[in-house]
Amino acid sequence: MEDIKTFSLSRHSRLFSLSDNSRDYLFVQAVDHPYLEEPYRAESYAIAFLKEGGIHLRAGLIGYAVDAPSIIALGPSVIRSFRKRSDLMKMDILFFKDTFLLERYASLFFQLKHNFFENSDLHVLPLKDHYIARFKRIFELIDLTKSVANYHQDDIVRSYIFALIYEIDAYYRQYSSNSQTALKTHPLFSKFSVLLAKNYMHERKLEFYARHLYVTSKHLSSAIKKQTGKSAVEWINQSITLEAKVLLQNRTLTVSQISNMFNFSDQSVFGKFFKANAGLSPIEYRNKF
Rank of each mutant, 00 (worst) to 15 (best):
residue 6 T to F: 08
residue 7 F to V: 04
residue 8 S to H: 07
residue 14 R to E: 15
residue 18 L to H: 05
residue 20 D to P: 00
residue 23 R to H: 11
residue 31 V to H: 15
residue 36 L to D: 08
residue 38 E to N: 11
residue 40 Y to D: 02
residue 40 Y to V: 10
residue 43 E to M: 09
residue 45 Y to D: 02
residue 48 A to M: 11
residue 51 K to Y: 10
residue 53 G to Q: 04
residue 63 G to S: 14
residue 66 V to C: 09
residue 67 D to V: 04
residue 73 A to H: 01
residue 74 L to W: 10
residue 78 V to L: 04
residue 78 V to H: 03
residue 80 R to H: 14
residue 81 S to C: 13
residue 83 R to T: 07
residue 85 R to K: 11
residue 101 L to V: 07
residue 109 F to P: 00
residue 118 E to L: 09
residue 121 D to Q: 08
residue 125 L to E: 08
residue 126 P to S: 00
residue 136 K to M: 07
residue 137 R to Y: 13
residue 140 E to C: 05
residue 141 L to G: 02
residue 143 D to N: 10
residue 144 L to A: 15
residue 144 L to D: 13
residue 147 S to P: 07
residue 149 A to R: 09
residue 154 D to C: 09
residue 154 D to H: 08
residue 159 S to K: 04
residue 162 F to K: 03
residue 162 F to V: 09
residue 162 F to I: 11
residue 178 N to S: 13
residue 181 T to I: 06
residue 183 L to V: 06
residue 196 L to I: 02
residue 196 L to Q: 04
residue 196 L to T: 01
residue 201 M to T: 04
residue 201 M to G: 03
residue 201 M to L: 14
residue 208 F to Q: 01
residue 210 A to L: 08
residue 211 R to H: 14
residue 227 Q to A: 15
residue 231 S to G: 11
residue 234 E to R: 07
residue 247 L to N: 01
residue 255 V to I: 14
residue 259 S to G: 08
residue 268 S to A: 09
residue 271 G to Q: 09
residue 272 K to C: 02
residue 275 K to R: 13
residue 287 N to W: 04
residue 288 K to G: 03
residue 288 K to A: 04
